[in-house]
Simulated assay, not measured.
Amino acid sequence: MKRSRQQTAVLLQLEQSARVARQVTDIHWDGNLPVDLPAIAQGLNLRMQQDGSLAGGDACLVYDAERSTLRVNPVNSRQRQRFAIAHGLAHHCLGHPSHADAPDSFNMGADIASLEANLFALEVLMPELAVRQVIRQEDLYDVSELAQRFGVSATAMHVRLQSLDLITQQDLDCSSAR
């Protein structure tokens, strides 16, 4: 199937987002699981702050000349907060303008900046090498257990496993039929 120029441009942007995420983890990740997002934020000179006033939103990135702040809604589950933080790190690292994310911007049908941030978040929260290593060395194949090990939701783990071709849609259909 032939891609349009626009589709090719989007794919290139997404690939760049994944590359930047890998560079960030190469530089700022200590290799332990789950990935220490506050340490990565600190390494990027990004302040993190809990903010219950986000009214249904997950996170808000506020740029400042000295030190930008990622405000995170503390009402959300730990897994959702972690995804929101990684998503906010993406907007910061990718140079997106100030960004506030509502819950539905975390789906894969969102605008290009949010798609880039979603891909970045998957890469940072579940680095490919770590996912493959945990599966191989710990003989761990249960998606829920993998999600717990990486501090993410089962949905995020499913998406990551699919992106790494470690699970198929058929596998997902079979597991949800049980």
Rank of each mutant, 00 (worst) to 15 (best):
T168I: 08
Q133F: 04
Q148G: 03
D104Y: 08
E66A: 12
Q13N: 13
A147K: 04
Q42T: 13
S175R: 12
Q137G: 14
R80D: 06
R160T: 01
N107F: 04
H28T: 01
N76R: 15
R19Y: 05
T155E: 12
D165Q: 14
L37G: 01
S98H: 08
E128L: 11
A121N: 05
L46V: 05
V152P: 03
L33R: 02
N118G: 10
L122N: 08
I167G: 04
A154L: 02
A21H: 03
S4F: 01
R82M: 08
R160N: 02
E145Y: 12
D173S: 06
D104W: 03
D101V: 14
C60T: 02
L61W: 00
G151A: 02
R178H: 12
S114Y: 06
A21M: 07
P127V: 14
M126K: 12
P97C: 09
D173G: 00
A65M: 08
L115F: 07
T168P: 02
L44N: 03
I135R: 15
V10G: 04
L146N: 04
V124E: 09
D142N: 14
G109L: 10
M1W: 10
A18T: 11
E66Y: 13
Q133E: 15
Q49G: 05
Q6I: 08
L12V: 08
R80N: 09
T25S: 13
R19S: 11
G57W: 00
I27P: 00
T155V: 09
R3G: 01
V62D: 11
N107G: 07
M48H: 09
R82K: 05
D142M: 07
V20E: 12
S175E: 12
E66H: 14
L172F: 05
G88K: 00
L33P: 03
D139C: 13
S105L: 09
Q49I: 06
V10F: 07
Q133M: 11
D36Y: 03
G56F: 05
L129Q: 15
D173C: 02
L33M: 06
T25H: 04
M157I: 02
C93E: 04
R80P: 01
R5G: 15
N73S: 14
L119K: 13
R132F: 07
F150D: 09
K2R: 14
M126Y: 08
I112G: 07
A147W: 07
D58I: 08
E138R: 10
N32Q: 14
V131Q: 08
V134D: 10
D51C: 05
C93K: 01
A110R: 07
C60Q: 14
